[in-house]
Design a protein around this nucleic acid. Sequence first.
DNA 1: GCATGAATGGACCCGGTGGTCCAGAATGGA
DNA 2: TCCATTCTGGACCACCGGGTCCATTCATGC
Lengths: 201, 201
Amino acid sequence: MSTPKLTPKGAATRDRIVQTAADLVLARGVGGTSLDDIRAGTATSKSQLFHYFPGGKGELVGALATLQAGRVLEAQRPWIDALDTWESWEGWRAGLLAHYDGLPHRGCPIGSLVQELSGTDPALAGVATAHMDEWLGRLGAGVVRMREAGHLRTDADPEALTLAIFAALQGGLMLNQALDSGAPLAAALDGALATLRDAAA
Amino acid sequence: MSTPKLTPKGAATRDRIVQTAADLVLARGVGGTSLDDIRAGTATSKSQLFHYFPGGKGELVGALATLQAGRVLEAQRPWIDALDTWESWEGWRAGLLAHYDGLPHRGCPIGSLVQELSGTDPALAGVATAHMDEWLGRLGAGVVRMREAGHLRTDADPEALTLAIFAALQGGLMLNQALDSGAPLAAALDGALATLRDAAA
DNA sequence: GCATGAATGGACCCGGTGGTCCAGAATGGA
DNA sequence: TCCATTCTGGACCACCGGGTCCATTCATGC
């Protein structure tokens, strides 16, 4: 819609730009990644960047956020869509650990985006936050399902549990990055599941 | 040592710079805060900034990180030095909630610093990380004390528990900021304590 | 009071950054 | 084939950021 027409070649170039930009931003942050870095990393020219993203850096970051959100959600499939048994929560945990363990950069792509942008670019932050809300919503739905299935006490507070689980996840990823280790996320997710079990029926 | 002499007036100016810079950076991040912003916010001139911080922005950020680390640790006293009973953990939780509830900006001053700097300025990130390690160490010591006091099972893993608790704390603060609410931190800390209780003797 | 050194003001410089522009090459449909 | 459209290259610009410099003012101890 924004870009009028897009030949296969053009689409490929655009994808290449978004993917490379996503990696660069994940590693160095939005502020730490210049358009020139992206241009160099994708073997493109300045004009192409603005050809495919007329809105400039902001639009590119938005696109990259969506890409990352899709990736991170995909990494949690199929468990993220279930989360209605203790086994699926365990699977979710394992999938997440496996996913991030294989990645060169620890840290959450969208969590760090939200954090960085919330202070400097509220509009863009909104885009990233929307993805986070989506994610949070899926977890919340899972917790509700757990309660409805009778696995949790009826007086358990699904919202609070969801926030606690997601906070542990995000904090674990942040510490993973800060301490350059995979242990924090593992410990954090164990803790999150312990919290959930604490509300078991 | 770095600054040769410092009259009371000079010291006051320096303090003013650090404190204002700390607030600005907390709100907008290091990259989002220019020296000119700080200059304007402190009614000083560019030359003063470099007079008191010859190392430039980096040195100033380092100083501000230390200030924030001190503040955040202070907010957890006296509980942070105990953490050897369930009551002191509850007190710690309450103190933390009260502290952040009264602050204009949600989010962790040093957590966000570590996150932002780790991608762009490893040297500075090290300074911030050191403060985080200090903090983590205090919590870890508390967990060990809990186990030694017989409140935790002997087979409980103090390191993992500490990481889980700290991750929940950091994640809770991050979500506090992202969702502009105090609920995430509260839920996250409840979860963290549930995790700890899960390892109770 | 007066000399010494700290404290301050502000002009200036330079590099990097996001963004613009236009010309030319590639592409694809009629 | 031919023409419209898209894709690409890269020079160029204006601005802003960190950092430098020097000249003044202020404070203080003798």
